[in-house]
Design a binder for these strands. Structure first.
Lengths: 201, 201
DNA sequence: CATTCTGTAGACCAGTCGGTCTAGCTACGC
DNA sequence: GCGTAGCTAGACCGACTGGTCTACAGAATG
């Protein structure tokens, strides 16, 4: 598997994943656990087993560029879950994806729950990061809205409901982390699904 | 107005508020804007117009103690809003308090929205802060549940609904900050109130 | 072989971090 | 007056921050 384009993988160091991927994975894990400002580049580097030179080679924009990449990746992941769901109704899809998220929360000992919470405070100090977060939310809401409309819900209502569900997931994840329990999150998911189902009015 | 106990106010510096209060107010503002890790002690000191010695006199525990104090203060504030509300039903109370929060969000240019988001990532590095956040959520949920029970809602359902409302407020505030718009938050509040009202089933 | 390009490796930097320490001021008890 | 406690004031500290820089290893191209 080539690292990039025509460049064959380095047989010495790239055992499993290339350096860029390792750095991104490490950053994802740490940012969601400690928050953007709570993580130092050295933490990322240590976890990724990479030197600083590699980091700035793959991410010339430094920490901020890594942050944006992580936000994008999270968004892509959730959107991917939505897309991959074969559930018949939107309500069923939310229940299914929500359960997948709940299990992730459990698997990580309630450490990496909140979706973008970790990045939220950055708008003032870093417009790029703030925009990335806003875009991620907008995409999730948009995707959900589209599904609801396809179900037959009026556009205006669908938009509100989609926004509502996203809020619920975010808030639920946040509180799950605070309380060290997924129970609130599961409750939120259940209610959100219910709301998309019965409330097609 | 004496600063503390029998100690008369310092005529030179304590014009409006004593130093401890100023430090706390500054920390509150900055933490909610940039997050716990995004704020340095020097930032707080500059905004509060206080020297470092005063900070460590009033908060021997340093930054962490300030963080805990800020979380407590936020919780006290919201609980106070609940208590002060003269609304007849719980639903009306939520609508009223939610509107007050929405106005605060607007007044601060969507900068200090999320309730505890800023502190959430700290559980791993600081148990005290994590516990303070968890306690704050528990208190809010408890207070809301008590109101709902007083309204005649069964205890189990009231607990779920209270938890649900808190999640919604938190998620709504988070997304309001991300999108730089209170509209999602107002929507969340409306839905939350509705849910407490019609769903007494 | 020589050059070049991709990427690794880590020493190094100025600036900032949270935190400590001593000095001094002011108001009160005596 | 004197001593002491409450509090202000800020110099100072080692650790660490994000970021830059040079050196170099290896595969690709000629």
């Amino acid at each position: 598997m080539p690292t990039r384009k025509t460049f064959a993988s380095n047989p010495a160091q790239n055992d499993a994943a290339d350096t860029r991927t390792r750095i991104l994975a490490a950053a994802l894990k740490l940012f969601r656990k400690h928050g953007y400002h709570g993580v130092g580049l050295n933490d990322i580097l240590e976890l990724a087993q990479a030197p600083k030179g590699s980091l700035y080679h793959h991410f010339p924009g430094g920490k901020e560029e890594i942050g944006v990449a992580v936000v994008d990746q999270i968004a892509k992941g959730i959107l991917g879950l939505f897309a991959a769901s074969r559930a018949r109704s939107t309500a069923a899809m939310i229940a299914q994806v929500g359960e997948q998220m709940a299990q992730t929360i459990e698997r990580t000992n309630h450490e990496l729950c909140a979706l973008y919470t970790a990045f939220l405070a950055e708008r003032s100090s870093s417009p790029d990061l703030g925009n990335a977060v806003a875009k991620a939310y907008a995409e999730m809401t948009g995707s959900l809205k589209a599904r609801l409309v396809a179900d037959g819900m009026p556009a205006k209502l669908a938009k509100d409901r989609a926004s509502f569900v996203v809020m619920l997931l975010e808030g639920g994840a946040t509180i799950a982390q605070a309380q060290q329990s997924v129970a609130p999150f599961r409750l939120a998911v259940k209610q959100a699904a219910l709301l998309c189902d019965v409330a097609l009015k």
